[in-house]
Amino acid sequence: MVFQKDPFNVIIGGVGGQGNVIASQVLGRILLPKGYVITIGETYGASQRGGAVMSHLRISAKDQFSPLIPEGQCDLLMALEPVEGLRILGQYGNPSVVSLINTRPIHPIEIISGQTPYPDVSEVLRRIGELSKGVWAFNATEIALEMGDPIFSNMVMLGALSMLDMLQIDRQGFEQAIGGLLSSGRLAQNLEAFDRGKMAVEKI
């Protein structure tokens, strides 16, 4: 498959601790063997501690691009948390972006302390829809919790991403990519998470 655009720009966003970095790394490792030049920029460091985090993934057939995507140039958004999706569109969105959203909120401390309310999730999704060409959404955290650990939600989301048919993500590529990256004891569970994500995602 050749992308309509080169570089093709993917942003994975979420909250520190949700496994953003691993998700971007897995995606990069799925695409690398297909001959692409991949660049992944990460915003972490102190932001591990519950802050907003983002990974910028650039996929190109020819060049190594900068680890930061210029504003307004995100082609595909995968948000592990709904308002984080909207935060990213505010800066990197454009009318042809496709968005995949985990609908399960994580409350920032200002919300917990009651300074502001968490916005209505359906309103957030509606606005994301307004700013995207297409939106896919579901509660990935719930599936991960059913599996016994919220940490699987990033792999659930990657399974869902494979359904969008925008990147060449297949189960075999996923399995190869997580081998050597995640502890082998959890391989089966990560594959299950991937499969369940595939089944669960819906276009809205």
Binding site: V15, G16, G17, A46, S47, R49, G50, G51, A52, V83, E84, L86, R87, L89, G90, Q91, P108, I109, E110, I111, T116, Y118, P119, E123, V124, R127, E130, L131
Partner: peptide, 14 residues
């Protein structure tokens, strides 16, 4: 839209 709806998310202890 994002300014209006998206709350800040400062760092905090886990």
């Amino acid at each position: 839209i994002s300014d209006q709806l998206v709350p800040e998310r400062p760092l905090g202890f886990c």
